[in-house]
């Protein structure tokens, strides 16, 4: 991906096994890189998730192109390293509305907060879930203790 090389010479670019491009950027650069990808035609956010490396979290944003003629279309994985707790990062859901729920799920599972997200709530777990972030490697399931239930927001 030449345009990334040109624009962000500091970022680490590497190839995945199947030919996808990985780019590891700084938290501050994240917004710029995603915007650059968007402008280069990568307007389809395939998935957004995180990896818990036990000493840090890596946020992975996979951006694709929807070009009908292109064969073997490849994905760009924009990676950001974040601290294991209290990580905050710019929300791409204003650029990619489809990433909205992916970001909510990432928050739900890893506790990464997305700044500027329009609806920053839990999604798969209950809104009043108190049990922590399940996909972290050190998550301990405290069942059978039930999480404390509070009155639901939408109960009218």
């Amino acid at each position: 991906m030449d345009f990334l090389n040109e624009k962000f010479p500091d970022a680490q670019l590497s190839d995945q096994l199947n030919g996808d491009t990985e780019i590891l950027v700084d938290t501050k650069e994240y917004e710029k890189v995603v915007r650059a990808c968007y402008e280069a035609g990568y307007t389809f956010c395939s998935v957004l998730s995180a990896i818990d490396w036990k000493d840090r979290l890596t946020l992975v944003t996979s951006l694709c192109r929807i070009v009908p003629e292109e064969v073997n279309t490849r994905t760009i994985h924009v990676k950001v390293d974040l601290p294991r707790s209290g990580g905050r990062v710019w929300s791409i859901s204003n650029l990619y509305p489809g990433a909205n729920w992916h970001e909510r799920e990432t928050y739900d599972m890893y506790g990464i907060r997305f700044e500027g997200h329009p609806n920053h709530r839990r999604i798969l777990l209950p809104d009043n879930w108190q049990g922590g972030f399940p996909l972290l490697k050190d998550f301990v399931d405290h069942r059978p203790k039930r999480p404390r239930l509070v009155r639901h927001r939408y109960a009218e």
Partner: peptide, 21 residues
Amino acid sequence: AYGASGAVLRGSGVKFDLRKN
């Protein structure tokens, strides 16, 4: 923009199918 794929994306007129692309 909303990340639709499959029949939903193609129903909107985008000729994109990962089996081809």
